[in-house]
């Protein structure tokens, strides 16, 4: 009596015991959804949360009807990395005001990959602030759009005020290999950070 719902659902392998997550963040239309879709082994899923402008959940405001609410979508995908381990990628919205959503996303996350577009570097400041406030380690990936200017790394680093140790990579969110390499740079960086802190 298997329902249609259960029979075509891609379940996590039985042997998997550990699930981790990495956030894919960036400003509007920088390529987050594309990136998650390129790497995910399942059809990416999407959830929607209704948030008030203040950042509280609508559920916390039962009965108050005239608050402005917005629907925030986040999409996510999954990669099975070993018999034991799956990695989830969450494409996170760049709006700072959704504090509760961000707390939820950041809790337990290994780190964040910040996608930037060289034609709109300034638009990345807000999202970098959020990631830093959440205390998440991160790497920056320039998602190269056709027609976007190519700046030397040093100029991008300076414009974004990156620490010397923060990885800066170029990637194409539509390309699997390139997107995987960006993720590898991030995890390599996380490993260095964790090996340093006793």
């Amino acid at each position: 009596m298997d329902s249609a719902l259960a029979s075509d659902t891609p379940y996590v392998r039985d042997s998997v015991r550990t699930a981790v997550k990495v956030l894919i963040v960036g400003h509007f239309a920088v390529g987050k959804t594309t990136y998650v879709g390129t790497l995910s082994e399942i059809r990416p899923l999407r959830t929607e949360e209704r948030m008030t402008q203040a950042g509280a959940s609508v559920d916390d405001l039962a009965g108050i009807r005239d608050k402005t609410t917005t629907t925030v979508a986040m999409d996510f995908g999954r990669l099975t990395l070993s018999d034991d381990l799956v990695l989830y990628l969450f494409g996170a919205p760049g709006q700072q005001r959704f504090t509760r959503l961000w707390d939820d996303l950041a809790r337990g996350a290994l780190g964040a990959l910040i996608l930037v577009d060289t034609a709109r570097l300034k638009e990345s400041f807000a999202v970098m602030d959020i990631v830093e406030k959440q205390g998440l380690p991160y790497a920056v990936a320039v998602n190269h759009f056709d027609g976007s200017p190519r700046f030397p790394d040093e100029e991008v680093r300076e414009a974004l005020d990156l620490a010397a140790t923060t990885p800066l990579i170029t990637c194409d969110a539509r390309d699997r290999r390139s997107s995987t390499e960006a993720l590898i740079s991030l995890v390599d960086h996380l490993l260095t950070l964790d090996a340093e802190t006793p």
Binding site: S82, L85, L110, T180, I184, V187, L190, L191
Partner: peptide
């Protein structure tokens, strides 16, 4: 764990 993630990627 991070090493396992890295190897998997």
């Amino acid at each position: 764990l991070l090493q396992e993630v890295l190897d998997g990627l």
